[in-house]
Amino acid sequence: MDEQDWIIRELEQLFDSSRDYKQKALLKAAADLIREQKTRKEQLQGELDGTLWSPGNWRN
């Protein structure tokens, strides 16, 4: 299990244990945000790979 999976699982456990509705919403939003960051990282990594492999940049 990588760190992200661990964090999300812990957040889900906190979510289940919370007795406060707004706090539950916050914990869920934190998990959603971490997933969104991961997607954004993958997109930027893809863009970087594409840039590095672009023939237009080979001369540089």
């Binding site: 906190l14 244990s17 919370s18 007795r19 406060d20 706090q23 916050l26």
Partner: peptide, 8 residues
């Protein structure tokens, strides 16, 4: 966030 409302 208040940790008193969390049971862990």
């Amino acid at each position: 966030t208040a940790t008193e409302t969390l049971r862990t």
